[in-house]
């Protein structure tokens, strides 16, 4: 009988010790993405009820938040100040969210397109070069064709930054040659020569090489 008690004591002690652990590790509270038994769909994070506006989210300025004026026409210009910081932010967001399909240069040959997604129109096509800034904002927000909207991932402020970056990419492909400063122009010519499939090694003049290195050290 006593031996039985001894034998039973071990498991009871183990059970008691393991019981210490779990209350605090798994508290009866909701952390992000935790399941909720209360709601039918099991999600603890709830969507905003239709027709309601959260405090601080009344976005009256239609141009800024929706990309079109009160007349419903897309705004011509980006309605936030263009700064270097905005362009760099736009570049970063573009590379994260847009480049998988549009490619880093906006030609529309990103990796997902190479794996079979429908190829988007190049940003350098005439139609998209002529579009107003608000149009791009609207497409990022609501999607277009096979593209889903990115309103959830990209905030309105970031959407304008991305639009600014799209404009930068467009400008980069249609810059008149004499617009460039002398060093940059030579740099570009050297790069174009270097990237040709059949290198004309003898055609490379040493002066061009030196201009490349000097522009890089600038």
């Amino acid at each position: 009988m006593r031996r039985l008690l001894f034998l039973a004591g071990g498991p009871v002690l183990a059970l008691a010790l393991s019981g210490c652990r779990n209350d605090m590790h798994h508290q009866a509270k909701i952390k992000p993405f935790r399941e909720s038994k209360f709601f039918a769909d099991g999600a603890s994070a709830r969507a905003l009820p239709e027709g309601t506006v959260a405090r601080g989210f009344l976005r009256e300025d239609s141009a800024l938040w929706r990309g079109h004026g009160p007349d419903g026409k897309f705004v011509e210009q980006i309605p936030v100040p263009l700064t270097r910081a905005l362009l760099l932010r736009g570049q970063e967001r573009f590379n994260v969210f847009c480049s998988p399909c549009h490619g880093r240069t906006g030609q529309g040959q990103g990796m997902i397109v190479q794996r079979g997604f429908k190829r988007p129109t190049s940003f350098h096509a005439d139609r998209l070069r002529a579009e107003r800034a608000g149009y791009f904002f609207d497409v990022i927000t609501n999607g277009f064709g096979q593209m889903s909207g990115y309103a959830v991932q990209v905030t309105p402020e970031d959407r304008w930054a991305v639009v600014a970056w799209i404009r930068t990419l467009q400008a980069s492909q249609h810059m008149p040659g004499d617009f460039l400063e002398k060093g940059d122009r030579e740099h570009l010519d050297t790069a174009a020569l270097a990237s040709q499939p059949e290198p004309a090694a003898s055609g490379h003049s040493p002066s061009k090489k030196s201009s490349l290195s000097s522009s890089e050290t600038k």
């Binding site: 590379n95 994260v96 969210f97 998988p100 990796m111 997902i112 794996r115 959830v152 991932q153």
Partner: peptide, 10 residues
């Protein structure tokens, strides 16, 4: 595919 972490973990 080279997808950035933030594309999904936004």
């Amino acid at each position: 595919l080279g997808i950035d972490c933030r594309y999904c973990h936004s």
